[in-house]
Design a protein around this nucleic acid. Structure first.
Lengths: 233, 233
DNA sequence: CCCTTTTCACCTAGGTGGTAAGAT
DNA sequence: ATCTTACCACCTAGGTGAAAAGGG
């Protein structure tokens, strides 16, 4: 689907105000989202699957743009996977109101388990082709397949730092490279942001929901070695 | 070694006149050059080995530069590998004066065999990180490992088109991206070119000199499968 | 006869989840 | 008990020269 930004798009530079982004592989994202998407985080950094990819339109073909992503916590909670009674202490086993009921399967589900860890510095990932002309960005699908997620707070590889067992919303930003001298003063007008709710996920160090594991194995080419039984072209 | 450009460096823009490039893996290039370097060309495109890599210095850290390569014919001859008497017709089996005597081994050597084919359009290969700031280019070795050579005159993959059995000199160009309005008028001042004689080579569809083959196998990691006998770290 | 094309086994390089051990 | 780490077999993706087949 198409996702504009949250607040009204007023006061934006002409070079970004008509920018639009369509999420690619939308049906796959939605299939994961129905189950409750999980993304592995490792010390060395792990790619996302599905990969975040968008098709852009409405850019000035001759202007320069920088494309980047960041990840914002969806709430201030820490989660655990299980069945409420597991408890040590004051775990109430209360489903977070923001987690739809359908997240529960087989007697296990995501349960709020306290307040979130203090958030990491909040890194961003620049698309490695940045900067480039609008025409170049619009020519084909823009893929963030070099982006990696890590749980290492001391990471020095430039990866995105996330807390495991916390929920995140990926955000995508189109930034017009303003050639004007004091362009910093217009910075707030020169970018446009996109959030696709179907791309939100839980950061984990190991998959919790077995249906997520199976969908990853079924849809990620690199996990073909774990597929068994009938081939499905 | 270091290689400046041919004609006097006079009249160059300040952003390029101090630029310098050191060829990396120089001793390997020289080892190949002593035997007579050959580079495979294929219809689909083949990488060079050794890869053309340079360490840059003397750029303006804050200015934008484009880096690119092209290949110029070293002479107007066509060559064949063999021993002079093979001949059909007027092959004289005369060693080209520009080919050192050491090119001959084992009763076989490169022989001039007529005039060169008409040259292809003369494509260039832009380093995929272009454009980038001088600081970025100087930070580490710049590698042209995405560059591919083809003998397909109709190639539409943007590869470098060469004639097999012809000799070429790789050239490397540093181009300052001039922000001035009518910068085209200064184009001749805004670049600096480098030629390393030890990187010249013969384009071939299959290796002719067996010593070249052995040196490729010994030094290219992707050819490790053809190494036999003692490992050499 | 000489050169080119195609196919192949064998590599490098790196992305998967499983598994068992480790940490708290 | 729950989460994390390290290692592994098994993939994708693509760069090698050898060998045999193809073409003029």
């Amino acid at each position: 689907g198409w996702a504009g930004e949250g607040p009204g798009a007023g006061g934006k530079n002409q070079h970004v105000c008509h920018a639009a982004a369509r999420l690619e592989m939308g049906s796959l994202w939605e299939e994961f989202n129905r189950l409750g998407t999980e993304m592995i985080v490792t010390k060395a950094g792990r790619r996302m699957f599905p990969t975040f990819q968008v098709k852009l339109s409405g850019l000035d073909p001759l202007a320069d743009y920088v494309l980047l992503m960041d990840f914002i916590p969806l709430d201030d909670k820490r989660y655990r996977w299980g069945w409420g009674s597991g408890g040590r202490g004051p775990d109430l086993g209360v489903l977070s109101p923001s987690l739809p009921r359908r997240y529960a399967f087989h007697s296990s589900s995501w349960l709020a388990a306290g307040r979130a860890e203090p958030a990491a510095p909040g890194r961003v990932h620049f698309h490695p082709d940045s900067p480039a002309k609008g025409a170049q960005w619009m020519r084909q699908i823009v893929s963030f397949d070099k982006l990696k997620l890590t749980n290492n707070l001391l990471d020095d590889n430039g990866h995105i730092i996330l807390n495991s067992m916390h929920r995140y919303q990926p955000r995508f930003h189109v930034v017009f490279v303003d050639p004007r001298r004091d362009s910093e003063r217009f910075a707030h007008q020169n970018f446009k942001s996109f959030s696709f709710p179907e791309t939100q996920f839980m950061a984990v160090t190991a998959y919790q929901n077995h249906r997520i594991t199976q969908l990853k194995i079924a849809s990620n080419p690199f996990a073909k070695g774990f597929r068994d039984g009938d081939p499905e072209p």
